[in-house]
């Protein structure tokens, strides 16, 4: 058995496999199917300051090798979340990361003030890349100035590790990543979903109630790998969490070879609830077979001849 533990800044994960925000709630449902302590970490569904009902249904649509969603950050708001979800979440034996989003800087500050006192939260993932909300989602994450302003604002009010989740819907993801890191981010998570839509040509309507949504699944894996690679190449000392299109262990290994220090599994879980565990086992087997004593040695271990 290889040493599977990895570090994302000063957050230690027992293995590199986390579950991505929005696909797992806080683990209640999937916790009925397997022991959550096998996970490296759980990233919660994104929490906002006020409760959000979410977008008009239909909210999901299957696409070739993937799916669209336009859930719209449905969540009970940070106060109710702390009251009803944290008591369950805090007891889990894995890294616990809370994903947050706000309509403006002030909302992010309000949320983080409430989270900062929670010892059980190991890191905060700042979601500035949701394609399904009008304010604070993509609009924030596509501007280096806004990302920089936001991260430096929240950096002042918390010591907790700040991870910034980036959108692929930009010309140069490394530029956005650098602005986040320069402003004090501890790690970068890439990628969120790609802006996407499908159309019912018979009725001439969108397949989604919110018209457009975000594409995830195997279809986006090559895009995600290129973005992770771009970030790692531009910022070799910054931990990158690879997200996008992981449906088997090999996909997670590819993310790590491209430069990710850890990964998050998202919509692949919907196909196979035990996928995160299969990925952990697969990474271990790969390390044994190819003689990597530690999983962290996989990060950026891509052979490139230039």
């Amino acid at each position: 058995m290889s040493d599977l533990a990895v570090n994302i800044g000063n957050v230690r994960l027992k293995n590199p496999v986390m579950v991505a925000s929005g696909c797992f709630g806080v683990g209640r449902e999937y916790g009925e199917l397997f022991d959550l302590s096998f996970l490296g970490g759980i990233v919660t569904k994104t929490v906002t300051l006020e409760p959000r009902e979410g977008n008009l249904p239909p909210r999901v649509w299957e696409t070739p090798a993937g799916m669209l969603n336009s859930i719209g950050l449905a969540n009970p708001g940070i106060s109710a979340f702390i009251e009803t979800e944290i008591p369950f979440f805090r007891e889990l034996d894995c890294a616990k990361i809370i994903s947050i989003a706000g309509k403006n800087f002030g909302e992010f500050v309000e949320i983080i003030k409430k989270i900062d006192a929670l010892d059980c939260i190991d890191a905060i993932e700042i979601n500035v890349s949701c394609p399904n909300v009008e304010e604070g989602g993509l609009a924030f994450g596509t501007s280096p100035e806004t990302v920089s302003g936001l991260v430096s604002t929240v950096r002042k009010i918390t010591e907790k590790p700040l991870w910034v989740k980036l959108t692929p819907n930009v010309t140069d993801i490394a530029e956005i990543g650098r602005s986040a890191v320069d402003a004090g981010a501890d790690a970068l998570c890439a990628i969120n979903t790609l802006s996407a839509m499908e159309i019912d040509i018979g009725r001439r309507v969108s397949r989604l109630g919110n018209i457009t949504g975000g594409l995830s699944g195997a279809a986006i894996r090559p895009v995600a790998l290129a973005k992770v690679f771009a970030l790692h190449r531009a910022l070799p000392d910054v931990p990158v969490v690879g997200i996008g299109g992981i449906t088997e262990a090999g996909d997670a290994i590819a993310h790590m070879l491209a430069g990710a220090s850890a990964v998050q599994v998202g919509s692949g879980i919907f196909r196979s609830p035990h996928l995160p565990i299969e990925v952990v086992v697969g990474i271990d087997q790969y390390c044994e077979f190819y003689d990597f004593p530690r999983a962290e040695d996989l990060t950026g271990a891509l052979n490139i001849e230039e």
Binding site: Y30, P57, R59, V60, E62, P273
Partner: peptide, 27 residues
């Protein structure tokens, strides 16, 4: 009946609006 992604209540993809707010068809 509703289109579903996770089927277990995690993703909130299959919600419908009821008199007590959005509810998940699957869960």
């Amino acid at each position: 009946e509703e289109r579903m992604a996770c089927g277990v209540g995690a993703c909130q993809g299959c919600t419908i609006k009821t008199k007590s707010g959005y509810r998940r068809v699957c869960k």
